[in-house]
Simulated scan of single mutants.
Amino acid sequence: MKDFEHLMTVWQGQPVKEQLSVDEALRQVKKGMGGLRSKTLQGIIGISIALAVTAISLLFSVFTSWASYIGLLTLIIGMSIYLSLQIGDYRTISSHDPTIDPAKYLETLKIYQKRRAYLYDRFYYIYAVIITIGIGLYAVEVLEDKPMMVKVIYYSLTAAFIIFCSLFLKDRIIISEKEKVKLIIEKLERLKDQFEG
Rank of each mutant, 00 (worst) to 15 (best):
K31H: 13
Y124M: 08
S21R: 09
L59P: 03
A103T: 14
T108P: 00
K104F: 09
D23P: 00
Y125R: 03
Q42A: 13
V150Q: 12
K151D: 08
S176C: 00
I174T: 10
M149P: 04
V181N: 00
G71W: 00
I56T: 11
K182C: 03
Y69C: 03
L58V: 13
F4P: 01
I93V: 12
T158W: 05
M8F: 11
K146F: 12
D101S: 12
S176V: 00
Q19N: 10
R37N: 05
I45R: 06
D193G: 04
Y125G: 02
K170T: 00
M1G: 14
K170G: 00
L109P: 02
K114I: 07
G71A: 04
G35W: 11
L109W: 01
I70A: 11
A52H: 05
I185Y: 01
W11Y: 13
Q12L: 09
L167V: 13
G88P: 01
S65N: 12
Y105N: 06
G197V: 10
A50E: 08
A25M: 09
G35V: 12
M149Q: 13
L169N: 07
L183Q: 14
L72K: 04
V140S: 05
S57M: 15
G136W: 06
L20G: 01
K180R: 11
I162F: 09
S94T: 11
K187A: 06
F168Y: 15
I130T: 08
M8Q: 13
I175E: 08
V140N: 06
V10H: 08
I44Q: 04
I174W: 02
F168E: 04
F161W: 08
A25Y: 02
S156L: 14
S80P: 02
I163E: 05
I153V: 15
T108Y: 03
F60N: 09
Y105M: 03
I111H: 03
A67W: 10
I173C: 00
G78R: 01
E186D: 14
V129L: 11
F164Q: 05
S80K: 05
K30S: 12
K180W: 00
L183V: 07
E196W: 05
I133F: 04
F123H: 03
I49N: 01
L85D: 02
T99F: 08
